[in-house]
């Protein structure tokens, strides 16, 4: 079965943070952006909004760093923490180069994205499709199709300069 991943298109993001709201509502039972596994990074002065999530690495550095082998990859390809085994040392937090590991300061837990076991809430509420949950093949084909359109438009522009 083709693996689905969370595909991010920064430029589509309106910065609304519905993904954060949905993630925390599903995982924590309350809209609580601090506990969301997705963060929308913002550069208001240039209008750049970027939803940042766990990359779900094939060779997760967090897993490599874990001294008690509490981190594994689940059936949908998500890198998850076994809360029973976790000792809270935060070695995973330090090892991740993407800031993909979050901490729950209240209940002293490590928070990671489990892709909602194959039905990610963040992608479901993103009407603008800045976050899409799709197979690598679908995503690749979509991007290739868009690229061909762009190149075609460019080609026409170059080939047929505007009449003056």
């Amino acid at each position: 079965m083709a693996q689905k991943i969370l595909v991010i298109d920064f430029e589509r993001c309106s910065g609304c943070r519905a993904c954060e709201a949905a993630c925390s509502q599903v995982r924590e039972g309350a809209v609580k952006p601090l506990m969301a596994r997705v963060y929308v990074m913002k550069w208001e002065e240039v209008g750049l909004y970027a939803p940042m999530l766990c990359q779900q690495c094939y060779t997760p550095l967090c897993r490599e760093a874990c001294p008690v082998k509490a981190i594994s990859i689940n059936s949908v390809g998500a890198v998850v923490v076994d809360e029973e085994a976790c000792i809270g040392c935060k070695a995973c937090f330090n090892a991740c180069p993407f800031g993909g590991i979050h901490l729950d300061p209240e209940r002293k837990r490590i928070l990671t994205c489990n892709l909602c076991e194959g039905d990610p809430a963040c992608a479901k509420v993103c009407y603008r499709q800045a976050i899409q949950y799709e197979t690598v093949t679908d995503s690749t084909l979509r991007k290739k199709r868009e690229a061909v359109k762009r190149i075609a438009e460019l080609t026409i522009r170059v080939a047929l300069p505007p009449q003056t």
Binding site: S14, G15, C16, R17, A18, A21, Y49, V125, R128
Partner: peptide
């Protein structure tokens, strides 16, 4: 497009 918190 840009939006308010959680608004589609």
């Amino acid at each position: 497009n840009t939006g308010c918190f959680a608004c589609p």
